[in-house]
Design a protein around this nucleic acid. Structure first.
Length: 488
RNA sequence: GGUCUCAUGGCCGAGCGGUUAGGCACCGGUCUGCAAAACCGUCUACAGCAGUUCGAAUCUGCUUGAGACCUCCA
């Protein structure tokens, strides 16, 4: 695995190009990913980012890295945006639902946990919450003030972007130039407390109707909306760690400001590799709450999205997502989901077929090369679509072996079996379909199919077809294969 | 308006200068009492116009179209 570790290449948003992945400490990876704000149930687009970073986490683990994966939960409303508007999303949800802020957070945290289970996400090493780290946030703000990169005005603290730009590059991640930003935003902040339009809040003085308020050296208030990630990543991963991830829409200003906060307090960029997952699209447009074109992960499961005429399992949705690269847009369409559903079953069938294959003295194809292609794909910036294509190449060969047209040796068979299983289930995070889940139905079906088998032996096609049609009406499909009859 | 990204066959989606991506659909075949399923095989591309190059989907320029960010956002 060490050799494979050395081959890993990651696209670093900070550099705008792929580069070899060299962890700060050999064999260890510290990874921080921005998690959800729990003022509502995460929608499918939110889930795509978490599924993609789950894939990355899983592959790093498979390569043998010891990974500390921190993904935060935002349970404090982000009080202001840079236009100075009040946007405490959690507080707003709390008022709308007539609950306390933490009730809202807990309510949706439970749902998020459930979704992670259903979509087969590995739990992160730590899931810290913002409200449990107010003190750490305050301490970092104090440090930034002490370093001269922030100032207090009337109970609020702002990051001093102009002062910061004298020593550091603001815009290093997003490529934004402050003077380009200015023309647009200046007017919005005319009567702001800020010294400069690009300054952002680290701490915001409390409003009378705020639902959550904390004490601070500057009076009662709320933390700004970037500081929590700086506080928590620093606490659990150190001032500098390996990978910082999140959705592409967080690149600016959230991640840019995290960098500014880290540089402003500790003098260094918090992460060496910045990774950004792309958005999920519906009809070519980003799925988003504000566009109203979003739907919930469980609506796909029960078929109530209104967009598709049937439901899909979490497994199919996950496989569908694995067929696009994490840095690409992905369009959520019914045809694409249907294709994923069929493809997935073809793939899992082939893995099951491996169990029945009889080895030959020699292999008629290069199994080792095939397995290497799995690693090659994933080592190239986690290129899951290529991996999937290679798994389908293996699928084709497995079926040919099963038909006696290709051969595989015993050691090669063992290798292929292991790697197919590992890559499909451990790395891609697909789930083995629970066979025979309807335990009470199984013996009944056995009996029914047995009777139908007898009818077929007697060439009593009327009875045989009657049974088949009757079962079809009950939603059970009978398949007459070469090796007997199966149903599903 | 500013910054940036992308335009691939019926659909989804890889590709980063020379090789079949892959899946689904279609079509042909194998199997089958029939059907379905399964398996095998095959076809359809690179938005447009110029340029660089022995060679371009892949590099450059322009045109057209779409999207993201600049407000909360995964």
């Amino acid at each position: 695995m060490k050799a494979q570790q050395d081959q890993l290449v990651i696209y670093n948003t900070l550099k705008g190009e792929k580069e070899p992945f060299v962890p700060i400490v050999a064999g260890r990876v510290g990874m921080y990913v921005c998690g959800p704000t729990l003022y509502s149930e995460p929608h499918m687009g939110n889930m795509r980012t978490f599924i993609n970073f789950d894939l990355i986490y899983r592959y790093l683990l498979h390569l043998g890295f010891s990974v500390k994966y921190v993904r935060n939960i935002t349970d404090a409303g982000h009080i202001t945006n840079s236009a100075g508007q009040e946007v405490d999303s959690i507080g707003a949800a709390a008022k709308a639902e007539q609950l306390q802020s933490l009730e809202i957070v807990y309510k949706y945290a439970v749902k998020f946990q459930e979704l992670q289970r259903i979509y087969n996400l590995l739990p992160p090493s730590i899931e810290p919450t913002a409200t449990q780290h107010i003190q750490e946030q305050i301490e970092i703000i104090e440090q930034i003030i002490a370093n001269g990169y922030a100032y207090e005005v009337n109970g609020s603290v702002y990051f001093d972007t102009r002062r910061y730009m004298q020593d550091f590059n603001y815009g290093i991640l997003s490529g934004r130039k402050v003077d380009e930003l200015e023309n647009e935003t200046r007017t919005l902040n005319a009567q702001d407390e800020k010294r400069f339009f690009a300054d952002f809040a680290l701490w915001k003085k409390a409003n009378p109707d705020d639902m959550q308020i904390w004490r601070s050296p500057w009076g009662n208030g709320n933390p700004g909306w970037h500081i929590e990630c700086t506080a928590m990543s620093t606490k659990y991963l150190g001032k500098q760690f390996d990978i910082h991830g999140g959705g592409m829409d967080l690149k600016f200003p959230h991640h840019e400001d995290e960098i500014a906060q880290s540089c402003g307090s500790f003098g260094c960029n918090p992460a060496r590799y910045w990774m950004h997952a792309n958005m999920l699209n519906v009809n070519g447009q980003k799925m988003s709450k504000s566009f109203g074109n979003y739907f919930l992960p469980k609506q796909i499961l029960d078929g109530s999205t209104g967009l598709f005429d049937k439901s899909y399992s979490a497994n199919v949705v996950r496989f569908f997502m694995m067929q696009a690269h994490y840095r690409s847009n992905l369009d959520f369409t019914q045809d694409a989901l249907n294709a994923a559903e069929k493809g997935l079953s073809k793939l899992t069938d082939a893995i099951a077929t491996l169990e029945r294959i009889q080895p030959a003295a020699q292999s008629s194809f290069d199994v080792n090369m095939l397995v290497q292609s799995f690693y090659k794909a994933m080592n190239d910036d986690f290129n899951a679509p290529i991996l999937v294509a290679n798994l389908f190449e293996a699928t084709r060969l497995i079926n040919l072996v099963n038909d006696g047209k290709e051969h595989i040796s015993s050691p090669d068979l063992a290798l292929l079996k292991e790697k197919m299983t590992v890559f499909a289930y451990d790395v891609l995070g697909l789930q083995k379909e629970a066979a025979g889940s309807e335990s009470r139905l199984a013996p009944v079906m056995e009996l029914v199919l047995d009777l139908r088998g007898q009818a077929r032996t007697n060439k009593d096609w009327t009875t045989s077809d009657q049974i088949r049609d009757g079962l079809a009406k009950a939603g059970i499909v009978v398949k007459d294969g070469k090796d007997g009859t199966t149903w599903s």
